[in-house]
Nucleic acid binder design. Structure first.
Ligand SMILES: [Zn+2]
Ligand SMILES: [Zn+2]
Ligand SMILES: [Zn+2]
Ligand SMILES: [Zn+2]
Lengths: 167, 167
DNA sequence: TGGCATAATGTTATATCATCACAATTAACT
DNA sequence: AGTTAATTGTGATGATATAACATTATGCCA
C-alpha cells in the first residue's frame, strides 16, 4: 500500500500533519537565515496554512486585525512580503492572492493548479516544464529570472461533482 | 537568404509591417466572427500595436481620452475586454497590463517573455511546454481550461547593455 | 545597565487597478 | 418608421497596493 508521493490538496489528506510539517520547516529555514518569524508573520503563515486556498491580502488582514494586530493594509502586506521573500509564501498572480508554499525545497519555481470549482490551489512542479522553459529561453537568448506558471481549470473532484465546462 | 521565423520584438524588425499584418488579420477574423471592430476598439488595438510593450488600462484610457473618446475607466476596460475575448489582446498578469496578440493563430496559449530592462514583452509558444503542462494535468487529474506562463528576466540586448543581475 | 542603531510595527493618507449602475446613443432588423 | 439589442458615456464605488512618517521593540556594544 504505497503512500501518495505528495499531499494532494485536492484530495483528502492529513492536513494537520501537512501544515504542521510546513510550519516546522519554515522555522528551521528562517533560523538558518537569521530572519525573525515575529508574531504577525508567524500568524500570517499559519492563517495561509489553514487551507489550501489562496487568500487575498485584505482577507489575511481581517484575520490579523481580529486577533489584535494592526488593522491597516501595510500590516498584512508587509508580513506577506516577508514570507514571499523568504520563499514561504507564493503570490498567485491570477487571483491577486497568496498561498503558503508547501514545498520543502528552497528557491523553486512553483506551478499552480487553480480549481475554479472549489477554489483550491495546488502547488506542483515539473522538470519537463522547467526544461521546456529553459529551451524557450535559450532559443530566444533570454535570461530567466522568475517564472509564473498558473493552470486554471477543474480538479477531478469538481469534474466528478458535475462542475460545468467553460470554454 | 531565409526570413526570420518570427518577428522578434526584442530585436530590430520592420514594425510597420509587423503591426500592419496583425491588424489586417484582426479585421479578417472579426469579420468572420460577425463581431464589430468599432472605432474605440480598433483604436485600442492600434495603440497596443504601436509598441511591443504591455500597457495598463489607464494608459490606454489616457490615449483614448486624448483622442476624443470617453474618459472614464469602463471605456478602456470594455474595449480591452472585447479584444481579449476575441483573442486579439492578451492580459499580462504579472504587469496588470495588456499586450496585442502577435500570433495569427486563434485560441492559443501564449507564453510571455517579459524583459525588466526594456519593458518589452515577447509572445512565444512551445509545444514542449504545452506537452509538459498536459502531462502535469494528466498526472494530477486536472482539467486545464486556461494557462498563464510568464517568464520574467532580461532580453539579450539588455544583458549586452549591462543590465545588472537581480537574484 | 544605559545608550545607540536597526528592524519591526502601527497609523494616516493616497495611489493604482477594476467594476457597478444607469442614462444616452447607435446599429441591426423587421 | 418602429422595435430591439449592442455599444458608448458618465458618476460612483469597490478592490488591491504603496508612500510617508511616528512609535516601539530588538540587538549590540560601551
Ligand atoms: Zn513553493
Ligand atoms: Zn476543485
Ligand atoms: Zn513589431
Ligand atoms: Zn530588454
Amino acid at each position: 500500500m504505497p503512500t501518495p508521493p505528495d499531499p494532494d490538496p485536492f484530495h483528502d489528506h492529513d492536513h494537520d500533519a501537512c501544515s504542521g510539517a510546513v510550519l516546522e520547516h519554515a522555522l528551521t529555514r528562517l533560523e538558518a537565515e537569521g530572519a525573525r518569524l515575529t508574531p504577525v508573520r508567524r500568524r500570517t503563515l499559519e492563517i495561509l496554512l489553514e487551507s489550501h486556498r489562496a487568500m487575498g491580502a485584505y482577507d489575511v488582514l481581517q484575520r490579523l486585525s481580529a486577533e489584535g494586530f494592526g488593522s491597516q493594509p501595510p500590516v498584512a502586506y508587509r508580513a506577506l512580503e516577508f514570507l514571499v521573500n523568504h520563499g514561504l509564501v507564493h503570490r498567485v498572480q491570477r487571483l491577486n492572492a497568496y498561498a503558503a508554499c508547501l514545498s520543502p525545497q528552497k528557491d523553486h519555481s512553483p506551478v499552480f493548479l487553480i480549481c475554479r470549482g472549489c477554489d483550491k490551489v495546488a502547488e506542483t512542479g515539473s522538470s519537463d516544464l522547467r526544461a521546456a522553459i529553459g529551451g524557450l529561453a535559450t532559443s530566444n537568448r533570454f535570461t530567466v529570472e522568475r517564472t509564473t506558471v498558473e493552470i486554471l481549470g477543474l480538479c477531478s473532484q469538481c469534474v466528478a461533482a458535475g462542475a460545468e465546462a467553460r470554454a
